[in-house]
């Protein structure tokens, strides 16, 4: 398991991938349904879905002529990706707060 600093923000660090993940958490979507709801092109959606699938966060199946994506019901990879994202955000915020805080608590009043 890499540290946060490592691969940047991980699979859900990209805002579009995160938006796709959150839409799929609501219900399964096809590629074109996702593209309609997001400000990105259909090829871009497909590319993000490929990354999410490779990361084990989503699975797909054919439904007639379309391919429908949903969160991986196994859930473990999704859980961990979500958590990594949250801790990454929290630790980054902590770093900023720590470096902005006065060195000595007594100095806070000044």
């Amino acid at each position: 398991m890499g540290a946060y600093g490592d691969a940047g923000l991980g699979l859900l660090g990209d805002p579009t991938r995160r938006a796709i993940f959150e839409l799929l958490a609501q219900r399964p979507h096809s590629v074109s349904e996702l593209a309609e709801r997001l400000p990105v092109s259909r090829p871009a959606v497909s590319q993000h879905l490929r990354a999410l699938k490779e990361g084990g966060l989503v699975v797909n199946r054919a439904e007639g002529t379309r391919r429908v994506y949903r969160l991986n019901p196994d859930g473990v990879a999704a859980l961990r990706a979500w958590l990594e994202r949250i801790w990454d955000e929290a630790l980054t915020a902590f770093q900023k707060a720590a470096e902005a805080a006065p060195i000595d608590p007594e100095q806070e009043q000044q």
């Binding site: 398991m1 890499g2 600093g5 958590l83 990594e84 990454d88 980054t92 902590f94 470096e99 805080a101």
Partner: peptide, 22 residues
């Protein structure tokens, strides 16, 4: 078991201050 999550960050402050802010 589900593998644990690990994170590391380096902050430019003494250890007491890091703990206090956290």
């Amino acid at each position: 078991a589900i593998p644990a999550i690990h994170g590391t960050v380096t902050v430019g402050v003494p250890v007491e201050q890091a703990f206090r802010v956290f």
